[in-house]
Design a protein around this nucleic acid. Structure first.
Lengths: 106, 106
DNA sequence: ACTTAATTTCGAAAAATATGGAAATAACAT
DNA sequence: ATGTTATTTCCATATTTTTCGAAATTAAGT
């Protein structure tokens, strides 16, 4: 993973609203969630939500699939894994932190 | 870890200059690196660097220790591990991505 | 074609971030 | 005390981000 891409993904997640949004999608699992359903959970205007979603989609953290008029959004696990892998590699280049990453697995 | 804190750390890392800066500190290992040495590697004005460093320190990703006139900076591994753990937990809440996280360990 | 529902784009204002020169501070040596 | 080096704070500016109402678009359903 290139540093620029990692930074873009980190920045995308580095906004409380978007991180919350991403969490909601993760919790929705493989079924995903329609934009409208997400809006119900976040209670923000649709245009604001659309901008945030776009950011997550553009950076490869979320995917979207049309079903008639509704747009299903899903957390893109491979994208997140690549990011976590990048961070872990950066973090563990010299150190000491493998155990804690391991802990996240349990 | 609280969502707000995770978001602040992600945002701190979500800037190419700061991510590069953080990488440099990780690679410097336990010895750390003086602010001036970092500046030499990044080639940015000291005031700009100081702002970025402050952001990483404030969010708990970097620590600093005075040695006479120079300030030694170190990557704060526990801070990063907590963040990676948070992301892994969020990501793996329902899914499918444990194997990839495992891969990051190797 | 017309309507309805879902979502995005446009446009614009407020807020936050990024950048860096110049001055201030910190810590020490002489 | 003065000088020197290292780093931060102050200040101002340019850019980017965030926010959201209103209008436009998309995709059915009737």
């Amino acid at each position: 993973m290139k540093l620029e891409k990692a930074a873009a993904q980190l920045e995308a997640l580095g906004n409380p609203t978007r991180l919350q949004l991403y969490r909601i999608l993760v919790r929705a699992g493989d079924d995903g969630l329609a934009v409208g359903s997400v809006q119900g959970k976040l209670d923000i205007p649709s245009s604001t939500l659309s901008h945030h979603l776009k950011r997550l989609v553009d950076t490869g953290l979320v995917t979207q699939e049309r079903q008639a008029t509704t747009l299903i959004c899903r957390a893109n696990y491979p994208g997140m894994n690549a990011l976590i892998g990048y961070l872990a590699d950066e973090c563990c280049a010299d150190a000491v932190c493998a155990p804690a990453v391991g802990k996240a697995l349990v």
